[in-house]
C-alpha cells in the first residue's frame, strides 16, 4: 500500500469513532436536532395538554397571552396554542408524506436512469424535465377548482408528485458514477440481476447521500405546504401553521397588533425548515470529512 493508503486505512479504523465523535459534538447537528425534537414534542404532547378541537371557540376574543392561554386567542376566541400544536402535527405530516413520495419517485427515476443509461435514460430525462417546467401553482389552482374537499393526503400527494425532479437528477448523477465501478461489473459476472445490483451494491454506497436528499425533500415539502396553506390552497379542514398565518392575515391581525396569532406559526415554520437545512449541512460535514471546518 502506498503511504496514502496506509494513512487512509489507519484513518478508517478510527472512522466510526470519528463519525460518532463529530455527530455528538457537531454544533450544527446538535442545535438543529434539538430544535426539531423540541417542536416534535410540542406536536405530540400538545393535544394531550390541550385536548379538544383546536378550532373551537372557547376563550375570550382576541386576548393576548396569559397564564391560561399561552399563546393568547384569535379574533374568534380560539386557543392559538392548541392550534399551534395541532398545526405542527399537520405540518410535520404533510412534510413527511410529501417528502417520502417525492423521495420514492426520485429514487426510482434516478436509479433506473443512471444504471441503465441509453434510451431509457433519455426517456426518463424527458419526463423529469417536463415535470420540472410545469407551473405547479397554476396546476394546483386547476386541481383545487375540481376538488371541493381536500385533506392533507391530497396536498402531500401533490407536493410529492411535483418536487421530485431535482432529487432524481442528483441520484442519477451519483448512480452513473457508481455504475462504472468495477464492483458493479463483478456483481454482474456473478449472475446478479440488474435490480438486485442497484439495491444491494449501488444504493448502500449512496446511503448517506440518500438520507441527506430525504432531509432536503422533507424540509422543502414543509415549506411548500406552508406556502400553499398561506394562499388558501391547502387542506379544507383541520389546521396547520400555514393556515394559521392565512387566517391571521385575513382577519387583520397585523394592523390590529395581534402579534401572538402570526408570530408563533411564522417562527415555527422558519425554525423547522431552517433547522432541517442546517441539519443537512451538519450531516454532510460528518459524512464528508473534507468539508469540516477544523
Amino acid at each position: 500500500m502506498t503511504v496514502g493508503a496506509v494513512v487512509a486505512s489507519t484513518e478508517s479504523v478510527g472512522r466510526r469513532r470519528e463519525i460518532l465523535y463529530f455527530a455528538l459534538r457537531g454544533r450544527k447537528v446538535l442545535i438543529s436536532s434539538s430544535i426539531l425534537i423540541f417542536f416534535a414534542v410540542i406536536a405530540v404532547a400538545g393535544p394531550l395538554i390541550r385536548p379538544g378541537d383546536p378550532n373551537a371557540f372557547i376563550g375570550p376574543l382576541a386576548a393576548p397571552p396569559d397564564g391560561q392561554y399561552w399563546f393568547g386567542t384569535t379574533t374568534f376566541g380560539q386557543d392559538v396554542f392548541a392550534q399551534f400544536a395541532s398545526g405542527l402535527r399537520a405540518t410535520f405530516t404533510a412534510g413527511l408524506l410529501g417528502g417520502s413520495i417525492a423521495a420514492l419517485i426520485g429514487m426510482a427515476v434516478g436509479f433506473v436512469a443512471g444504471y441503465r443509461g441509453g434510451v431509457i435514460d433519455e426517456i426518463l430525462n424527458m419526463v423529469t424535465n417536463i415535470v420540472l417546467v410545469i407551473p405547479t401553482l397554476a396546476l394546483l389552482i386547476v386541481v383545487t377548482a375540481y376538488l371541493s374537499a381536500r385533506g392533507i393526503f391530497v396536498e402531500a400527494l401533490f407536493i410529492g408528485l411535483t418536487s421530485w425532479p431535482w432529487a432524481a437528477r442528483a441520484i442519477r448523477a451519483q448512480t452513473f458514477s457508481l455504475a462504472t465501478r468495477d464492483f458493479v461489473d463483478l456483481a454482474r459476472i456473478s449472475g446478479v440481476r440488474s435490480l438486485r445490483v442497484i439495491f444491494s451494491e449501488i444504493a448502500p454506497n449512496m446511503s448517506s447521500y440518500l438520507f441527506l436528499t430525504f432531509i432536503l425533500l422533507f424540509g422543502g415539502a414543509i415549506l411548500i405546504a406552508a406556502s400553499l396553506d398561506f394562499i388558501g390552497l391547502g387542506p379544507t379542514e383541520g389546521t396547520s401553521l400555514g393556515l394559521m398565518m392565512y387566517n391571521a392575515v385575513a382577519w387583520s391581525a397585523l394592523p390590529l397588533g395581534m402579534w401572538w396569532w402570526f408570530i408563533p406559526p411564522g417562527i415555527g415554520i422558519t425554525a423547522i425548515v431552517g433547522s432541517l437545512y442546517v441539519l443537512n449541512v451538519g450531516l454532510d460535514e460528518i459524512f464528508n470529512p473534507r468539508l469540516r471546518e477544523s
Binding site: V3, V6, V7, T10, E11, V13, G14, E18
Partner: peptide, 11 residues
C-alpha cells in the same frame, strides 16, 4: 512523518 488521527505515520 505524516500526521493522522491514529498517530504519526513514519513515512
Amino acid at each position: 512523518y505524516y500526521r493522522t488521527l491514529a498517530g504519526d505515520v513514519k513515512a
